[in-house]
Design a protein around this nucleic acid. Structure first.
Length: 491
RNA sequence: CGGGGCGUAGCGUAGCCCGGUCAUCGCGCCUGGUUUGGGACCAGGAGGUCGCAAGUUCGAAUCUUGCCGCCCCGACCA
């Protein structure tokens, strides 16, 4: 048992913080709301980034980079967009500091006021569509499929490590198309890329759906999302893909000539996932002893710990350990051989459990005499002896098994936490006692949605894709409804 | 911005109510040695403007006032 980590049952929020801080993923910084992503946390993000980047490229996208700063006037071009983001913008007003003539250190030079303020990007639609205007003239320039990896700033009132920070890292895709159909297809393609990534790499099952109008991205016609469920029964929006229609093309006057030489506005999408995914990964799988990382994302998949008495054994095991590490590495695994003599095996066991390394191999003289190794799984804590000659194949197979079982476990949990509610009492009771997603009828009005949120803190997470039609009455208003939608308390 | 905590060594803390050899303890760190199959042990050692500022007092970590910062819960959101 861990000496340091608050248990989930005691305080879920504190458990999460303990894991992030003590697992070495991130630290608080000197800047309120901004965190330091530490090497292990960044390695995790890099694994996610690299996998996603490859998927983006496979679906035809290219990376580019646009400015951190957005002229204030750009942001206000699209009315809904500016309304959505205005309240959380960091604004650059000056470009120079100087020594205070009164001797109080350094001050903003009042002479150095910018004519037009610059907004630190909360998202890049405006600067990008202002650019696309010059890139797009003809249908031959379309589709334009661009992604950028960047940092953005949103001045949130309250922040939480990885889940919501003032500055965060993300990717934002911005595409331009010749038709509504093509843009919609792109929107769904990218939603599926996200879902595929979440489920097959992060082992986090997600529900694909569309947001209600009030939860829509500022400036979008439709916002699609993937919704994940955390162990405490709260939902987390893990990614979004927006169908922007011609809103930004109109705002930035981006037109193209089609085959018939007719001029029309360009159709757009945008889509993004952020470092929030790291938080989702932590909260979806980990336990009271530390992180549990899915093999495909784990920076280290296998750690080898030598166990020895005396220098002679240490030297012998150093050789054997390096040999084994190389063997596993050559078989395609990410391996660490920890022969650091400063810590004893027990300490290392606990440490790598905290860090969530999927497989630990203990190697001592006893094992080598038996021609076996002790292999321990992080997810189940199960220990098995594996013959030396089978080690590569077996460990490789075990990694796949862990990946699959982690997903299956999360899926079972998620599916057990989708409950149907047909009365208001049932709806409230399920939210309070069980949590998770509540599938319930909704009359389709923003008023009911808002009232439900007010009464229960549950938000309409999404209308699942391919949602079956079903006649019913709204859980709150009793008015007619044509389908069930998913509600949950959320991060 | 409202509510609740908190600020003492790198980290976690005791002391504050009742001012006076009180700066406590644990972890970590350094040196040496013994250890190494689930968070080792012994011996020695280094490390502090008690968040900042003013005030009360012979004397302030402790009392008063002001300020700053952080965390948690809520409103806002990926």
């Amino acid at each position: 048992m861990s000496k340091e980590i608050t248990s989930r049952a005691t305080d879920y929020a504190q458990w999460y913080n303990d894991l992030v801080l003590k697992g070495g993923l991130a630290d608080y910084s000197a800047v309120r709301g901004c965190m330091i992503i530490k090497p292990y946390g960044f390695a995790l993000w890099e694994k996610m980034r690299d996998a996603l980047d490859e998927m983006f490229k496979e679906t035809g996208h290219e990376n580019a980079y646009f400015p951190l700063f957005i002229p204030k006037s750009f942001l206000s071009r699209e009315a809904a967009h500016v309304e959505g983001f205005a309240k959380e913008c960091a604004v650059v007003t000056h470009y120079r500091l100087k020594n205070d003539p009164d001797g109080n250190g350094i001050i903003v030079d009042p002479e150095a006021k910018l004519d037009e303020e610059l907004i630190v990007r909360p998202t890049s639609e405006t600067i990008i569509w202002n650019t696309y205007k010059t890139w797009i003239q003809s249908y031959r320039d379309l589709p334009l499929l661009i992604n950028q990896w960047a940092n953005v700033v949103r001045w949130e009132m309250r922040t939480r490590l990885f889940l919501r920070t003032t500055e965060f890292l993300w990717q934002e895709g911005h595409t331009a198309h010749a038709s509504s159909e093509e843009a919609m297809a792109e929107t769904l393609t990218m939603l599926n890329v996200y879902a595929d990534f979440a489920e097959n790499y992060m082992a986090v099952p997600v529900i694909r759906g569309v947001k209600s109008p009030s939860e829509r991205f500022a400036g979008a016609i439709d916002t699609y999302c993937i919704e994940a469920l955390m162990q405490d029964g709260k939902a987390l929006q893990a990614g979004t893909s927006h169908f922007l229609g011609q809103n930004f093309a109109k705002a930035f006057d981006v037109k193209f000539s089609d085959r018939e030489n007719k001029l029309d506005y360009v159709w757009a999408t945008s889509w993004g996932v952020s470092t929030r995914l790291v938080g989702a990964l932590v909260m979806a799988h980990s336990d009271d002893d530390g992180l549990i990382l899915p093999p495909k994302i784990a920076p280290v998949q296998v750690v080898i710990i030598p166990i020895y008495k005396g220098t002679e054994q240490k030297e012998m095991l150093d050789g054997k350990g390096k040999e084994l590490a190389l063997q596993l590495k050559n078989a395609g695994m990410r391996v660490k051989f920890d022969n650091n003599d400063n810590n004893r095996p027990g300490w290392k066991f606990a440490q790598y459990e905290l860090k969530g390394v999927p497989i630990r191999i203990a190697m001592g003289v006893r094992d080598l005499e038996n021609q076996t190794l002790e292999v321990a799984r992080r997810d189940t804590k199960e220990k098995i002896a594996i013959p030396l000659e089978d080690i590569s194949a077996r460990v490789n197979g075990l990694l796949k098994e862990i990946q699959d079982q982690m997903f299956q476990k999360a899926l079972d949990f998620r599916d057990n936490h989708i409950s149907r509610a047909d009365t208001w009492e049932e709806f409230e009771r399920l939210l309070d006692e069980k949590g998770g997603f509540i599938s319930a009828h909704w009359d389709g009005t923003a008023e009911s949605e808002e009232a439900i949120k007010e009464k229960t803190k549950a938000t309409l997470r999404c209308i699942p894709l391919n949602n079956p039609a079903e006649v019913g009455v709204c859980i709150l208003s009793g008015k007619p409804s044509t389908q069930r939608v998913l509600f949950a308390r959320a991060y």
